[in-house]
Design a protein around this nucleic acid. Structure first.
Lengths: 175, 175
DNA sequence: GCGTATCCCATTGACGCCCATATGGTCCCA
DNA sequence: TGGGACCATATGGGCGTCAATGGGATACGC
């Protein structure tokens, strides 16, 4: 728990000293990006609390509805505001409109994406849509990715992170 | 031929009309487009409930009659309001009326399209017209495609989605 | 008149909304 | 500096509402 909160403290990029002042002031100091990771449990009804730091970012961006889709690379669900979807749609529009790629892209981001919203306590439902693709069963790891965040099966995340770290290490030795 | 018609579909569909209009119009559309997917059962009478989220979009657009046609690319039935048909007709009108493209497109969207309407509970009849083309038997997957939605045989949808994701993955690694 | 489609009502199971509790951290003060 | 009050977050659960589904009854067409 200590470690988890220490991480969350880093999310906001603020040391203890700056945590004085009103909540509003604090929220505006926070960099508006999703950073770090935290693991929460799923309750009996299939809900999980989104980390407070992430909720703060969402609130600052006035995000009411969450756009969720299955990540193209990792076995994870990527979540952002409607702007994330719009970015994909611009990408479709920018592509050759005549290409079948645009059609397949639409199949993924429109047909494979869902809008979700948090309940009053900042929790979201972990649906079969999420479980099936990620392997999540009873715990969720929230991973910040700057402009969006992801839902991972905890072990899958540490594994992917370890692999990524290994590859960076190799890359560093090469250069 | 299929590819040419797919191009026409895309011209008049997602990448064309969708991003035109004022910012206000666009924001309105953003909140009320067809998104995500859901699988519902067909009852003993051959009816299936259209997902509530889709019905809300239809209601918001004041769509009473549904225009349905066999998709040009996928083994799915595409469904939208009368505006969808009108868009195709404008596309035909823009071409040489005697061109093979216009002729064949008319054959598909006029000859292959039907009007349907929902019952009081928001259900639609799954006719042989739908079953034959999609392979649907006892379950229907509704797939949002922004300005319209589609009816898929559940397994066919996951297969097509998986293939699209696979190609997308390759494309991502290339770039 | 028989099969089919439409209308109306009942059921139930899931989800949203609400409040309660616990756990751990921060802050204040002696 | 250590203890205790206070607070925020995470978590658990009750309950009402609504969507999805099933089934009976009626109108319509071949």
């Amino acid at each position: 728990m200590l470690i988890r909160l220490a991480k969350l403290c880093l999310i906001s990029g603020v040391s203890g000293v700056f945590w004085s002042g009103s909540l509003r002031e604090r929220m505006f100091r926070v960099m508006s990006r999703f950073l770090s990771n935290a693991t929460n449990r799923i309750d009996a009804k299939g809900r999980v609390s989104v980390p407070s730091a992430f909720r703060s970012v969402l609130a600052q961006r006035n995000v009411q509805e969450l756009y969720c889709f299955q990540d193209f690379v990792f076995p994870a669900i990527s979540i952002g505001g409607p702007d994330l979807l719009e970015r994909f749609e611009r990408q479709i529009a920018a592509e050759d409109p005549f290409s079948p790629d645009a059609n397949e892209m639409s199949l993924l981001i429109h047909g494979g994406g869902v809008f979700m919203k948090l309940d009053a306590e900042g929790r979201l439902m972990v649906t079969d849509f999420i479980r099936g693709f990620t392997g999540i069963s009873d715990e969720v790891t929230f991973v910040g990715r700057a402009d969006h965040f992801q839902l991972w099966q905890p072990q899958a995340f540490v594994a992917a992170q370890a692999q990524a770290r290994g590859e960076r290490k190799l890359a560093g030795k090469r250069s």
